[in-house]
């Protein structure tokens, strides 16, 4: 059974009397114990909103989020608060997510204090020191303030805070996006070490294909608040089916400069999430488009075990034909 299941969740926002923004349009994700699910999307694709929905920080308009079998929106406020020691979060901006007036030690210890998990001050302090050690920070940094630390150290503090209550599930909302490449690698390694040590499940949100590929067991590609394709990492990278996935994968840089990646281009810009297309969300941009694409909504269909794609043309054109088409 999955630890976290997001079931057909819809979330819209409206500011004042402004237009309704369709941020998340029917997303389903299941994450098993010990698994890392990577969510890739452009900015504005609704991936961070999915993260907040998964944490129960936002209420879905429809659909449900279950953690460990319990529907989050059915829980009382205090029950949900208690759950916050089982599911935690690491944010994108390490500095902004740490209170500048608190010391590193009290920031890391705060979840313990909030949840009342330890009785004595010294027990809290011991656990905070141990949490700092497990993210490879000197315990002597506990007396410092966030501004005294480097970006990488600040993010380690954010991670220490997220693991101190021994959670089972962590939302990683672009945890490496604002860091240098070398520091990114260290943080990713740390995250995967912590995962195997504590048996954590991750929802890893990012726009960076490479980090997601490296850390994830399964991947979902988000486009305009929907998942257009989801599969285990190797399957997705070896055999991308959805035109959007192909475009995304062909846009990445090749690690070998002598080998150039075949470019698969989409037309025009991503549509405004206030006016969703009637049919396939990619209609109008897709080189494989036929008339039927813009007529009715497209559902995720299984193309093989664990591999699901939201495209009605999946069976019609295999990848060879497609690249041939594109060369014209």
């Amino acid at each position: 059974m999955s630890l976290l299941s997001i079931d057909n969740v819809i979330k819209t926002f409206q500011r004042g009397r402004g237009p309704i923004i369709h941020a998340v349009n029917g997303v389903t994700i299941n994450i098993a114990e010990g698994e890392t699910y990577g969510l890739i999307g452009e900015s504005g694709s609704g991936k961070s909103t999915v993260g907040r929905l998964a944490m129960g920080l936002l209420e879905p308009d429809s659909g449900s989020v279950r953690f460990d079998g319990k529907v989050l929106s059915d829980l009382s406020r205090s029950a949900r608060r208690k759950l916050r020691s089982d599911m935690t979060v690491v944010f994108q901006e390490p500095y902004e997510s740490l209170n500048p007036r608190m010391t590193v030690g009290s920031i890391v210890a705060e979840p313990l204090v909030i949840q009342g998990l330890e009785d004595s001050r010294s027990a809290v302090r011991d656990r905070a020191f141990r949490a700092l050690e497990s993210v490879q920070l000197e315990p002597s940094l506990a007396k410092r303030h966030p501004r005294d630390l480097s970006g990488g150290q600040q993010q380690r503090v954010g991670i220490a805070r997220a693991i101190i209550t021994r959670p089972r599930f962590i939302v990683l909302d672009e945890p490496t996006s604002s860091l240098d490449v070398s520091v990114q690698a260290q943080i990713l390694t740390l995250l995967s070490e912590l995962q195997s040590e504590y048996g954590l499940s991750y929802l890893f949100i990012s726009h960076d294909i490479h980090t997601v590929e490296w850390i994830s067991d399964r991947i979902g590609i988000m486009y305009l608040g929907q998942i257009s394709e989801t599969a285990p990492t190797t399957t997705l990278f070896d055999n991308p089916n959805h035109p959007y996935t192909r475009a995304l994968l062909s846009a990445r840089l090749s690690p070998d400069p002598t080998v150039s990646i075949e470019r698969f281009m989409l037309g025009r810009e991503i549509p405004n999430p206030t006016q969703l297309p009637a049919g396939c969300f990619l209609s109008g941009r897709c080189p494989m488009e036929i008339d039927k694409c813009s007529e009715s909504p497209v559902e995720l269909e299984a193309v093989s075990v664990n591999h699901r794609v939201a495209c009605i043309r999946v069976g019609d054109i295999d990848s060879e034909d497609l690249t041939a088409n594109l060369r014209e």
Binding site: M55, L57, V89, E96, L98, E110, I114
Partner: peptide, 21 residues
């Protein structure tokens, strides 16, 4: 601010957010 959102995400009560953050 993000750190207030973080405090709420870790289960901080309203009064804790007020007086600590």
């Amino acid at each position: 601010s993000r750190f207030v959102e973080a405090a709420v995400a870790f289960g901080a009560t309203r009064s804790r957010v007020m007086f600590r953050h």
